[in-house]
Amino acid sequence: METNLCVAGFGGQGVMSLGKFLADATCNSTDKNVTFFPSYGAEQRGGTANCFVVISDDDIGAPLGDVMDDLIVMNGPSLAKFLPTLKKGGNLFINSSIVSDQIDRDDVTLVKAPVTELALEMGNAKVLNVIMLGVYVGFTQVIEPAIVWDTIEHKLASKPKLLPLNKQAFEKGLELGKAQRG
């Protein structure tokens, strides 16, 4: 069993952290193989950012597969770029605040979450990635939510003030993800 995930968006949307939280949690609390592979533009600010996470029971070949099982799209341009890599029957997660849900494929499962708006409602635009991580984990159940939260908590240990907000964001995402399971 091998799961290939691509997370894509603008620089600054926390795309890398989203992928890293998931991969790190898998490393810490399972005996599965897992890789994280980032891909940046040459720019230091702005530009595109995407990363790839592979979780597998066997040895992992490339840390980015040819075909994605799951795709998380945080902005419009990433949808056009990465949608063709999503397998038939794959899961497409979109930030429906800014990504149109008019998808020109009917062979994938669409999961929508307005994470930009939700983050602003919570008072911090930066937590959109943690909401989306919750959506992904809630929907796919690829890994225990509690394990992912432990990892986030550990990573934010130096910024304890941010914990309640992130907890709220993660749980909101979980709820949205679970609700859309078939």
Binding site: C27, T35, F37
Partner: peptide, 9 residues
């Protein structure tokens, strides 16, 4: 560059 930039356990 892959071995350098990828993360793995």
């Amino acid at each position: 560059g892959v071995i350098g930039t990828m993360m793995e356990p």
